[in-house]
Nucleic acid binder design. Structure first.
Lengths: 208, 208
DNA sequence: CCTTGTCCATCATCTGCTTGATGGATAGTC
DNA sequence: GACTATCCATCAAGCAGATGATGGACAAGG
């Protein structure tokens, strides 16, 4: 029985809660929490705490934990524009590829947290049908970006003549997906592996 | 207050519980459960149910959930003898490598469940220091198995002259670690990717 | 009688979610 | 301008179910 109500409802903090903005805040906190503790360790209470709001308020914005998780997934996947907007003058395939690899590797070093969450997502997708479809679509887009480059490189002689573009795309995407699972890998080691991957695609006759 | 005790304690079932044997049974059930639902979905109650024993009995054998998980980890890691006992006459490096890749791929297709659990382990290792050390040791053993083969292949001309053995080993192990994260990958696609990986290591002058 | 293995019942805690209430802001009406 | 209604965002408190763990008892075998 609430006999006394000592604390007054906090007036909406300025800069904090304009609905969508507040929701974004919550999603961001949830992402950080997932990066810290994994999906296993995601507690709505702690998300609320990190944002500095009451659990009920969180549930006001996200009716269920699942809704929150869905928002997190959408946010992360939405950020997954790994396919850069078409360069005006795309470089030759081999350089295009190298640029892409180093770009993603850069992202990995700079925004490791997001890769951790993404990793959690992929892990979850093994058992979650809906999530699997979402990520699979994103994977398809990624592959569809890579395959033409690989094919062009093979056809113009920069890459191996016997290159299987789809298989090579699988190797490339798999390389990034596995990054977090190389437990002792240094950034330098990762770059060396990426370079090795590139050399494996190269035509050996092509001077580099 | 237990006023009546209607049910009689079941006499120990024969063939069931000789200590170590019972423990192994529990660990196996836990592994299946983890494969089904992930670590996130591991409940000691359900493990007990699957084994057909009471929760208290499970806690008799494993004083805590953590102890059970530790046993599961040890069991899986102990099974991680990916390095076959030295063949009497090891084949030439290139064939040795190809054999290894196809062997692991075979294991993946046949014992996918164990790979799922292993995947959970790697995911966990990102945050769990102790587990990370264990898996890292296993990774090191794997790399130490691959690197000499790669080096020998490079030196005898079967593999590329500019091959970086350590980086290549990272690619190979990473390929397997990423398998479950290729959400739409068919067994055939996996084999094609493995072959592409091998071709990338090959010296192109060497007839195959 | 001691050890091993088992069970039933229960506990304490965690966790997702709900309830009922509060105050600020905004808009319409007098 | 003052009053009223309504909406939005928030909170304190609490519930119900799940979950890891414990206590105490019992049987069987040595």
């Amino acid at each position: 029985m609430p006999t006394s109500r000592t604390s007054v409802p906090v007036p909406r903090e300025r800069g904090a809660g304009s609905g969508a903005q507040r929701r974004q805040e919550i999603v961001a906190a949830a992402q950080r929490l997932i990066a810290d503790k994994g999906f296993e360790g995601l507690r709505v209470r702690e998300v609320a705490d990190r944002v500095g709001i009451n659990i009920a308020t969180l549930h006001y914005h996200f009716p269920s934990k699942e809704a929150l998780v869905t928002a997190v997934v959408q946010d992360i996947v939405g950020r997954l524009d790994r396919v850069p907007a078409g360069d005006v003058q795309p470089p030759p395939p081999r350089e295009h590829l190298a640029g892409h690899l180093h770009h993603v590797l850069d992202q990995f070093e700079r925004h490791r947290e997001q890769f951790v969450v993404l990793n959690e997502l992929y892990n979850r997708a093994i058992r979650d049908e809906a999530l699997r479809r979402v990520l699979q679509a994103s994977d398809t887009a990624w592959t569809d970006y890579l395959v033409p480059i690989l094919r062009a490189g093979r056809d113009n002689g920069q890459l191996r003549a016997d290159l299987d573009p789809v298989a090579a795309a699988t190797l490339i995407t798999g390389f990034f997906k596995s990054l977090l699972f190389h437990l002792g890998l240094t950034p330098q080691g990762a770059r060396q592996a990426a370079d090795e991957l590139l050399r494996g695609l190269d035509s050996q006759e092509t001077p580099r």
